[in-house]
Design a protein around this nucleic acid. Structure first.
Lengths: 242, 242
DNA sequence: CGAGTGGTTGATATCTTTCAACCCACGTGG
DNA sequence: CCACGTGGGTTGAAAGATATCAACCACTCG
């Protein structure tokens, strides 16, 4: 089990940064505490001071924030293989919730172990830092999505982002991918209501752009969907680092 | 001139992370190219591959992104002393624009110089990394702002964020601060139209929460403004790091 | 003085929400 | 095996928030 966890981690880091054998060995030597979690469980809560970072090996997770008016905004969705919780490495107090979306296998790595690794292996530090910068780039695009695009375009954009990110970890078959979210969760990603998500999905269906079959999304016309959603995957920075 | 630039930089970094004398000396030895820029000039553009990071010593700047429909979303506003452009250090291609808002003194530091410093002085790396994580925390809060809050609350929230950040660099007198943005720029921060900003400002004025005098913002009732805007400054992480 | 930028206001259109009813698939317990 | 409870999802009608369009106003700067 711990094997598949470190595998996921090294795969992620070497995808963008060139690490040497010693770097990889050091990463593999990290003590990781693996835990299997049910769907819809809090991993870390707003206001806590976590001592560990997490890695989702299997399953989906998400970050979110509640409003004093009781509304929830989902800030990001994490797919298998992501390291979603590096944000807390140098910020003592959590400013948002981090939870599982599906049943998930989560690896916990203590901050101190990670900080020690970072101090010894600067290339690993750079690779991890880069991951947090990509997270930030995705946050930026989400600001644009909820700030400037109409409902249909928001959903189109979100679907294409998830498709691109899932493709990177081999979770897209043809033009179909699993999306384990209900309409309320989609709504909270997009800053619209669940009722409106229903209508907006209907529109995408009727325009022949996407088919939804339970939790399976089938992209029927990627080009037109991309135009509608104003999607340009540059912001995902899925290419080799410097 | 270069003096005040490195001063701003070391002040920023030592505010949150404990650096030793060698660290500070290394930061002060960075070759910085200082440039004086007019208001509303692009510093780096979307799609470019910059070779330098920037530091705004004097003046305001902002990051933004254009939509294919021609709309602009402002992603963050930077106040004097910020290091707004670290995002590009490990992401080769810019995914957004970065521009001056007012006349500004901007310091450029080459990526290679910065990367060399990072590799030699891990504490400085950590301090800089932390800065980028705080940027990301602010992006998250902006997602919530545009995604979940009504117009009035969005503006209230933005004003309080800027007040808190300006206070940190001594730019708040009493409860008043300079905000060099017109209504179109505010609108593009908030994901609403300039006309609506005008109405929303009127409401804040009439409720006795804020006075606007040209580019001066006077906060009349910070408590009620904070409630309205659902503002909790935790996400700014203005405290000492680990 | 005249032009231009930025702000205000009113009327109307549009998008999204809200509320409510209804449906369907599924699982559970009698 | 069936009754029924429940969590989604869908749909319609009405309300609400914000956008759009257009006119007008107030300053500032050549």
């Amino acid at each position: 089990m711990a094997n598949t966890v470190t595998d996921a981690l090294t795969r992620k880091l070497t995808a963008t940064t060139r690490l040497d054998a010693d770097d990889i060995a050091a990463v593999e030597a990290l003590p990781i505490n693996v835990k299997s979690m049910a769907a819809h469980q809090a991993i870390v809560r707003d206001g806590e001071c976590p001592q560990e970072c997490c890695l989702t090996v299997e399953g989906f997770s998400f970050r979110s924030k509640m409003t004093s008016a009781g509304k929830r905004q989902i800030l990001s969705v994490h797919v298998p293989g992501d390291i979603p919780d590096l944000q807390s490495l140098y910020l003592e107090k959590m400013d948002h919730d981090f939870s599982t979306l599906t049943r998930a296998t989560v690896g916990f790595i203590s901050h101190t172990a990670l900080r020690n690794l970072i101090r010894e292996r600067i290339r690993v530090a750079e690779a991890l830092w880069r991951e947090t910068l990509i997270d930030a780039a995705i946050f930026r695009e989400w600001i644009v999505n909820v700030g400037q695009r109409p409902g249909v375009a928001r959903l189109a954009h979100l679907l294409l982002e998830l498709k691109a990110r899932l493709a990177l970890v081999g979770r897209v078959q043809g033009n179909a991918f699993e999306l384990p979210m209900n309409q309320q969760e989609l709504a909270d990603c997009l800053g619209i209501t669940a009722v409106h998500v229903s209508r907006v999905m209907k529109e995408l269906r009727e325009r022949g752009l996407v088919d939804f079959q339970r939790h399976l999304v089938v992209v029927r016309d990627e080009r037109r969907l991309g135009e509608l959603g104003d999607f340009d995957q540059l912001y995902l920075h899925e290419n080799r680092g410097p």
